[in-house]
């Protein structure tokens, strides 16, 4: 696969998704970037804005197996990863057989992930990071490609369990799904309340997605771009050598090295999606918000004043200069 083929396929996937997902161009792009960068996505938005629809459509377009887990407070880890069950065959022999959970899929929609207990949420940790599940001492690899797309509702916080930092860090991007504008709502009504409900056709398969993921990793990232990523992440640390002003004031703990990886991978995917074989600082800036917003641990002052992590990330990006040196006096 080459850059042009990737670009063409990317555009076809977007177009196909656009048949069912109205608006949310940024969210769709973010999801696709995360998929091709090989990462997981946390979608945050109020109910009914098309999060689940988007994920299901994505699975169909990419030709991947899809499963949905509705996270509830009584959901147990075994309900996610599976469990060994005692099965008696026709001859009366009883054997313990592993019954895979819904995580054994290629696109897993963890719907309202913050409604499950931390214990259940943590059941996804190994799957997200290691692409494998261990049950009763046995490790079961997950079929690649494997994506977790989790959703959470930002307004109904009662009875929820905020995701632990370790799990948040495993999401490549955190995308906010805003309420669609009026024109989009009209378009949604037109498409979904008639007799003909649009359906999507698969335009890729698992092998193609894997090739696309491999190509993303081939994208050139010059040392100065990598240095820019490192400086951005470094600037989010208030105790670091060169913290940004916003980080010094609002942040308790900054983004991890995994955040830097996510930033660069997402930037590479974006460059490729735009038909380029190299990453630029602009790509990094474009994906900085979804890649870093969930990795900042704000301090008490920020919580008290209602400071949004997005604001902090924006200020950090504004403050940290590109690596490009400027001639003196210009």
């Amino acid at each position: 696969m080459d850059v042009e083929e990737f670009g063409a396929l990317y555009q076809r996937i977007r177009a196909e998704l656009g048949r069912v997902v109205v608006g949310h161009a940024d969210v769709v792009e973010g999801v696709l970037l995360a998929v091709f960068a090989g990462g997981h996505v946390l979608l945050e938005g109020v109910p009914g804005v098309g999060k689940t629809l988007m994920v299901k459509a994505l699975a169909q377009v990419l030709g991947l197996r899809f499963s949905r887990i509705q996270f509830t407070p009584d959901l147990m880890p075994a309900d996610v990863v599976g469990t060994n069950v005692l099965i008696q065959d026709a001859e009366g022999h009883r054997v313990l057989t592993f019954q895979p959970g819904p995580v054994f899929s290629q696109i897993v929609l963890a719907d309202e992930i913050n409604r499950a207990t931390p214990k259940t949420q943590s059941a996804l940790l190994e799957a997200m990071q290691e692409y494998a599940v261990t049950v009763a001492g046995t490790t079961y690899p997950l079929e690649r490609p494997f994506f977790v797309l989790a959703t959470q509702n930002p307004i109904e916080m009662e009875g929820t369990y905020p995701l632990p930092e370790a799990q948040l860090d495993r999401f490549l991007l955190k995308l906010r799904v805003p309420f669609p504008d009026r024109e989009s709502v009209v378009q949604i009504l037109e498409r979904t309340t008639g007799s003909q409900v649009p359906e999507v056709q698969p335009v890729a398969d698992a092998a193609t997605v894997l090739r696309m993921q491999a190509l993303v990793r081939e994208v050139l990232a010059a040392p100065h771009v990598q240095a820019y990523v490192a400086r951005l992440v470094e600037a989010t640390h208030p105790q670091g050598p060169r913290p940004a002003k916003a980080a010094r004031r609002w942040v308790r703990y900054g983004a991890s090295p995994r955040g830097a990886q996510a930033l660069l991978l997402a930037a590479k995917a974006r460059a490729l999606a735009n038909g380029r074989a190299h990453t630029s600082a602009e790509d990094v800036r474009a994906v900085a918000l979804p890649a870093l917003r969930h990795r900042l641990l704000l301090n008490f002052e920020a919580e008290a004043e209602g400071v949004d992590p997005d604001q902090v990330v924006r200020e950090v990006v504004e403050e940290v200069p590109e690596v490009a040196p400027t001639p003196a006096g210009t």
């Binding site: 081939e218 010059a222 190299h278």
Partner: peptide, 19 residues
């Protein structure tokens, strides 16, 4: 879009890639 910077890096042999 950082083409020239990346070009300088590529000419210096860093980074290596199929692209």
């Amino acid at each position: 879009l950082d083409r020239m910077c990346t070009y300088v890096a590529v000419r210096e042999g860093n980074p290596r890639s199929a692209l």
